[in-house]
Amino acid sequence: MTTAMNAPVNLAAPPPRKLRVATTSLAGCFGCHMSLLDIDERILTLLDLVEFDRSPITDIKHCGPCDLGIIEGGLCNAENVHVLREFRNHCKIILALGACAINGGLPAQRNHLDLRDVLEEVYQTEVGLSHGGIPNDPELPLPLNKVHPIHEVVKVDYFLPGCPPPADAIWKLLTDLLAGRTPTLGHGLMHYD
């Protein structure tokens, strides 16, 4: 028997500590973030319980060690992959927020097309464009051949569907997580559209 198992057991919940949360929008429309803000005055309660790391709310550029990383949007380019990996490396829990993070969503509806044809049409052949050629500045992230949901690249711990997920659903999920409960959504809070 190990000494750890003989150690005194503390059945009380751990002392309150503000959980650190990071959020980002990859190939998304920020609609899920807007829905997060739609929790309205409950955000004040939330701020008593969490502090934000990297997020459009804080404008912090890189993610530090966090308890929870919230990802909106899927993966459509190399930068999305970099950001997602940064989150996965620094966050104990990753939450896929909304349709695009979960199944690629609207951006993934380009997936039945060949990316080369798309680039050619958008930058070269379509009427009314500047015909300046396909941008090749190294500052620009390259698009992926296909758009992918985030669980195809990193392990995702929780999913919250919706386009966007309703504010009440986000609130329910966050409060469940904060309270140490496995999140559940009843009828009306769970929808894919």
Partner: peptide, 10 residues
Amino acid sequence: AALSQARQMT
């Protein structure tokens, strides 16, 4: 490999 087509086009 998922960046191959974009590399080819740019």
